[in-house]
Amino acid sequence: MGNSVIVRRLGLLAVLALCVVLLALVPHLPSYYVRVVDSILIYIILAVGLNLVVGYAGLLDLGFIAFYAVGAYAYALLASGQFDIHLPFIVILFIGAAAGAIAGVLLGFPVLKLRGDYLAIVTLSFGEIIRIAINNADDLTNGPQGIAGLDRASLFGLPLTTPVHFYWLLLVLAITVCGGVYYMERSILGKAWRALREDQDVVRGLGINTTTLKLLAFALSAAIGGAGGVIFGAFQRFVSPESFTFQESLLVVLIIIIGGVGNIVGVIAGAVVLVVLPEVLHFAAQYRLLIYGVVLVTVIVLRPGGLVSPRFNLGFIIRKVRTLWLSPSKT
């Protein structure tokens, strides 16, 4: 008995150590791979943010990328030669998140009485309107050419220029966002969102203001999207409306569904699969998209509930670790 506990604890330690070592090894990979990992982390942040709305509150938002665009353009306008404003990165990070949240509330306020597909199409329209407006407001955003030559970012005196720098930043941010959302998921707020997803009339009957709940989900997820956009802008040092198409919104939704709705572990898995898959398929040249689509449909048809089972979530892993460590006899 005692022996097996030690073995299991060692096994657990080994798994945790392996994760840490893998994450620590990433910066030593060739630059291309670091960029792919960066991109995975950005999509994890976005998808965890959108998951608040789609996965927890059960509202389909097809225009999420608009908030990402708001963040990216916040960086582009406040840290470039466009208006010769050069604010520090960290300030813009908060401005971008706030601007995202405000946009989220502005969108959410009038449309949240709509249900289901009507909400989906209105958010979609909103995303398109933002993109077209960016495309045409030449004086402000430089139109389709986009804004190039954004400032090199730095954080507390540390430069943020190479993919490796962004890897560390994104890793910290992704862990923070996942942790924060996990905390929220377990709070009374998270429970209220889930109830909202199951039956909004009952939630209203219990005396909870559903509009406030929905607005909160919208604002928080939009803030995360905005912050992600700021980092994207600082990373690319170039923004143009092309990065914020309807297809991008759909990609984020796709990550959530492929991984497993309302499950942070699932979202991480989904982001890894959907970012890595097109990279792996580079060998297939012009057949790349075709194979990508076929794989997508096959995965959905074979595992309609997502790749990761709803039981295998962050809470499950934490419980497992805790029981094994504190009271191993119960496992």
């Binding site: 492929i258 998209l289 689509g293 076929v294 997508l296 449909v297 959905i300 048809v301």
Partner: peptide, 11 residues
């Protein structure tokens, strides 16, 4: 989402 995948496949 399956429909979305089919759209990519067809196109």
């Amino acid at each position: 989402l399956s429909a979305l995948g089919m759209s990519i496949v067809l196109q």
